[in-house]
Amino acid sequence: MQTRSVAMEEGKELPMPSRTIQARVLPLKLLLFFLLFLGVGIAFIIISMLMSRHFYVDNVIIPATSNRVQPCFQEPLSFRSWIKPPSTVWHTMNDSQLFWRASFDPQITSYPFKRVPKIAFMFLTRGPLPMARLWDRYFKGHEEHYSVYIHALPSYVEDYPPSSAFYRRQIPSQVAEWGMMSMCDAERRLLANALLDISNEWFILLSEACIPLQSFPIAYLYLSISHTSYMGSYDDPGPFGRGRYNDNMAPLVNLSDWRKGSQWFEVNRKLAIDIVKDDTYYPIFEKFCRPACYVDEHYFQTMLSIQSPHLLANRSLTWTDWSRGGAHPATFGAADMEKKFFKNIIEKQKCMFHNQTSSACFLFARKFAPSALDTLLAHSFEFFGY
């Protein structure tokens, strides 16, 4: 007992300090091991992230078979998608979008594909086309050389048979009021829809009361050899011409520029694009040409006379009888349908064609009542050659 006490007093008890040193060394090793493990874990995480990103790029973003990435050579971006006509005339574009799209104009005049020029027949009507059966006879056999567009009241539902050239050819439309800018809007809408077909070269505006005076081959030849477009554009010094001019239109449109002409016209593709893309003359005519200034008789006629006078024949291809006076031309019914009547229109008129006096002046005529249809169908070959 004494020996132990002395030993303790003299510091001879050595086992206790040894255990204390070991206890201090052990946590240090654990700490180093933990830090090493943590470093390995961090390195593993970084490598995993890099490998994951690499495989995500390779397997999800790059392959052309992904459902979210469309290869650049698919059909929507093919050359054919630019030149083939729309499968339907119906669409969801508003006027601003439609006019912008229709104003596209290739600057290279030669076509890198076989293009068969077509005539676009544009019918501006309130509802049905009473002369549709006569027109179907006129069109028969010439399907590759024409296209049809109808602007009717939005509420009108067409009921033409599938065999008709007018079947499902009604474009998205709006109400057009006689003598108002909405009438020119409807005409621009027809032109814009027709311009979406790159093959349409000539654009003819017609009413529901119009009929063809010549066979289709004659009309096609007539337009194909013409160097001008057929829009009446002349200086009328009277109250129904210059008398409708508003001084507020100057200096953009001066009195010396003011022109008048028939609403019913034919224009080539260049002039059709000029009409559709116009945002210079439109605002001033909309503001200052209101009844008794009838804008459909002055807007296009004046604008094109200023911009492209050398491209206008300054006459219409649609015969109309104004001899009876009044605000509207004469209407013809069943009693008027005689060979002599049409012979006077077709053969006894005089006009300039290819800088020469000619009797080949009109391809169409108006206004014909529905009662005239049966007689026209019975004698169309005798009268018109179709």
Rank of each mutant, 00 (worst) to 15 (best):
F362H: 14
W135R: 02
E13R: 10
H227E: 12
H298F: 01
A369T: 12
Q174I: 11
L213K: 07
M1V: 00
I45D: 14
L271K: 04
W178P: 03
L32T: 02
T92S: 09
Q356S: 11
F216K: 14
W322V: 03
W90Q: 15
S182R: 04
T228M: 13
P162S: 11
S316R: 02
F342M: 02
F265K: 03
K140L: 11
T302Q: 06
S110L: 09
Q174P: 00
S5D: 06
T228E: 13
F34P: 03
L196N: 01
I198S: 03
R324V: 00
M181N: 03
L195N: 05
I345M: 01
F44L: 04
P161R: 03
K260H: 02
L30K: 09
D274F: 13
I346K: 14
F240Y: 10
E382G: 09
Q174V: 12
V57K: 09
G261E: 08
Y294E: 05
L36C: 06
L35C: 01
W100Q: 15
V116S: 10
T88Y: 12
V295S: 15
S52D: 09
L206W: 05
C351E: 09
Q170H: 02
I46H: 05
F123T: 04
R80D: 11
V157I: 15
Y160P: 00
S5T: 03
M183W: 09
T20D: 14
G261S: 08
T357S: 11
D159W: 01
P130I: 00
L221I: 06
F384M: 01
P172Y: 04
S147I: 07
S262M: 15
I171N: 05
I273D: 00
P15Q: 02
T331L: 11
S226Y: 06
L14C: 02
P237N: 12
F34C: 04
S155M: 13
M8K: 12
D274Q: 15
L31M: 06
G241P: 01
T320L: 05
T65V: 12
Q74N: 08
C72F: 15
R4A: 09
G238W: 01
N344R: 12
P237M: 14
I83H: 07
N67E: 04
F121H: 13
Q70S: 07
R19A: 14
R115C: 09
F104Q: 06
A292S: 13
E347K: 13
I83R: 05
S48F: 08
S103G: 07
L363R: 04
S155D: 15
C184H: 11
M231N: 02
S182H: 06
L191N: 07
M249A: 00
V69G: 04
A292W: 15
C184M: 13
P217F: 10
A378W: 02
S78C: 13
F265V: 15
L255C: 04
S323H: 05
W319A: 07
Y138P: 00
R115A: 12
M16A: 11
M51I: 04
L223M: 13
K348D: 00
I306E: 04
T302H: 01
L124W: 15
H379L: 11
C210I: 03
L31S: 05
L213A: 10
I345T: 03
D197R: 02
E201C: 06
M49E: 02
F368L: 07
